[in-house]
């Protein structure tokens, strides 16, 4: 079973990280799921693949009623992000899935009906969770061509999807980045290979530099907080991406 950790709380407004499953088979990439709660409703960010549903569900259920999840945010279309969709819908068939317009006719192959999907336009949009505004921030081509991050202005948290992801070794499984220079070595190869466009990366760095961010939460690896957020943006800004080293 995964563990949950509340990384932000202000009344019933919470960010809960669902992370690190010791029973996960090695051949499945490790993923972080995040649950944002507010006003008795929940939004699950990148709910994960079908195979890890039991681990995510059981961890989440210890903190929150799964039938009160009213929304799912999918940063992009990958199976490790959203292939569990059909099972989450079992708990609330009215649940909306927010994702790039580009994938709104692809993801239904994982489940849902026409009413399930709320396509996000390229420029992004505000998604409300029981009145709490969450901003879908464009991150196209990082790595998916239709890709969004989710910014919570009130909590000052940016869910960054694959941006900031790191493939951590078994002995380095902390939830937060503790030593940036050590950590970033595990992120470098991933970003060079998965991120396809230097121009898209530059635009993203400019865009998120204007946001007030206390925590940058990726879908894989550890969370950047405090000064490590800007350190990451600077590091990413100077990294040459879209390279295949043979």
């Amino acid at each position: 079973m995964k563990k949950t950790e509340i990384i932000y709380q202000n009344g019933d407004h919470k960010w809960i990280a669902i992370v690190r499953d010791p029973a996960k088979p090695d051949f499945l990439i490790d993923t972080n799921e995040y649950l944002v709660t507010h006003g008795g409703q929940g939004m699950l960010l990148d709910p994960g693949g079908l195979e890890i549903f039991p681990a995510v569900f059981s961890a989440l259920a210890t903190e929150f009623d799964p039938s009160a999840i009213t929304g799912i945010f999918a940063s992009h279309q990958d199976p490790d992000v959203i292939s569990s969709l059909a099972l989450w819908l079992e708990f609330n068939p009215e649940m909306r899935c927010h994702l790039s317009w580009m994938w709104s006719s692809f993801i239904p192959h994982f489940g849902g009906t026409a009413a399930t999907f709320s396509p996000i336009p390229d420029e992004g949009m505000t998604i409300l969770l029981a009145g709490l505004p969450l901003q879908a921030v464009p991150a196209h081509y990082l790595h998916s061509s239709g890709n969004f991050n989710l910014y919570d202005r009130s909590a000052k948290i940016l869910f960054s999807g694959d941006v900031g992801a790191a493939l951590l070794p078994a002995e380095q499984q902390g939830l937060f980045v503790e030593d940036f220079s050590t950590h970033i070595r595990h992120a470098e190869g991933f970003h060079r290979r998965w991120m396809g466009s230097n121009e898209a990366k530059r635009q993203w760095c400019e865009r998120v530099s204007q946001l007030n961010i206390d925590m940058l939460c990726p879908q894989h690896g550890a969370i950047y907080r405090g000064e490590d957020v800007q350190r990451f943006i600077n590091w990413f800004g100077s990294l040459q991406v879209g390279l295949l080293r043979t």
């Binding site: 079973m1 549903f53 039991p54 569900f57 059981s58 259920a61 799964p66 099972l87």
Partner: peptide, 15 residues
Amino acid sequence: VLKSAVSIVPLNSRL
């Protein structure tokens, strides 16, 4: 998949 979740949290009424 759901049965696997039940084996972890057998008493969850929603499940």
